[in-house]
Amino acid sequence: MSLAIIIVTYNSARVIEACLDSLGPWARKALVVDNASSDATAELVRRRGVRLLSMPGNLGFARAVNRGVKAALSRNVCLLNPDCLATPELFSLGLAALEGGERLIAAPALDDHGQTVPGRQPGYSRLKLAHDLLTLGWPFPHKLAWMSRRPGYHDRSWYWAHGACLFMQRELFLRLGGMPTNYFIYMEDVELGLRLRRAGGRVVELPYTLPHLTAQGAVVTAARRRWLLARGRLKYAARHYGTLFAVGLGLLTLPGLWAKGALK
């Protein structure tokens, strides 16, 4: 089965070489989509003979992924973050999983600095959105842990695949409209999972744990990352739970983000 490994980069020079090294012989299947990095990312990719697609500016994760998938022309695609360290076994397992059905996404678990994060995640409820947003802006986020223990925190009627690494058929990806481009980065993988569920598809988790150097794939300040996370979640809240709900969450969250420097 044919496969293209789509890796979106933005100022990823510190991790891209290790990522490509980890692919082993699968590196020849890689397509790096670079969002106009100002560091040596593109040059490092070229030196290794890996196919490179350069964007005219930083288009965001979703648009870059969509450009890469359209250019790949393979039957199957793997979306892989540049701060992931894969092995050839991962790609064999991913392709084998895709043989199990036409409307599915397969994702490995992630090892985030010693903490295992499931690649198959339950859907977002209002409570989960509120928790995730408030923890970004509140000075003592651990005080909000009680929220995650409340009934209904997860919406287990559907699941989404963590965007750090996922496998799916290219045709299905395009049929679902690709990654939702109304998100610059963050929450587009959640939206994709919701689209999959509405199309009658499902998400499966691979028997594999992928080392993931969380938040190392791009040179972005912690404050900027918090703002991008908040913006994505507020957009999702407005889209699926209404503008008033999103505005209320924003009023509770944004002052704390300002205090932490995310809005300066």
Rank of each mutant, 00 (worst) to 15 (best):
S54Y: 04
S54F: 00
P56K: 04
P56G: 11
P56F: 02
G57T: 05
G57W: 06
G57F: 08
N58F: 05
G60H: 09
G60Q: 04
F61G: 03
F61K: 15
A64S: 14
A64I: 01
V65Y: 04
V65S: 08
N66Y: 05
G68R: 02
G68P: 04
G68T: 03
A71G: 01
A72V: 01
R75D: 12
R75M: 08
N76V: 02
N76M: 08
V77F: 08
C78F: 08
C78K: 02
C78G: 12
L79I: 15
L79K: 11
L80W: 04
L80N: 09
L80R: 08
N81T: 12
N81C: 12
N81Q: 13
P82V: 06
D83P: 14
D83M: 13
D83V: 10
C84Q: 03
C84S: 14
L85G: 05
L85P: 06
A86L: 12
A86Q: 09
T87K: 09
T87G: 08
E89D: 15
E89A: 15
S92K: 15
L93H: 11
L93C: 12
G94C: 11
L95I: 09
A96F: 00
A96K: 15
A97C: 09
A97L: 07
L98M: 10
E102V: 06
E102A: 15
E102T: 11
E102W: 09
R103A: 13
R103I: 01
R103Y: 07
L104V: 02
L104Y: 02
I105Q: 05
A106H: 03
P108N: 14
P108E: 10
A109F: 02
L110W: 02
D111T: 10
D112M: 14
D112L: 10
H113E: 08
G114L: 08
T116A: 12
T116N: 01
V117N: 09
P118V: 10
P118D: 00
G119A: 12
Q121L: 14
Q121M: 15
G123A: 10
Y124R: 13
Y124H: 14
S125F: 06
R126K: 13
R126Y: 04
L127E: 10
L127Q: 08
L129E: 03
A130V: 01
D132V: 00
D132C: 12
L133H: 01
L133W: 02
T135Q: 13
T135K: 12
L136D: 12
L136F: 01
L136E: 13
P139K: 10
F140C: 12
P141H: 06
P141G: 11
H142M: 07
H142C: 10
H142R: 15
K143S: 15
L144V: 08
L144I: 05
L144Y: 00
W146A: 14
M147H: 01
S148C: 04
R149L: 12
R149T: 07
R150G: 10
P151M: 13
P151D: 14
G152L: 04
G152V: 00
Y153D: 09
Y153L: 07
H154W: 11
H154S: 13
H154D: 15
R156P: 01
S157A: 13
W158K: 08
W158P: 05
Y159A: 09
Y159E: 00
W160H: 14
A161Y: 01
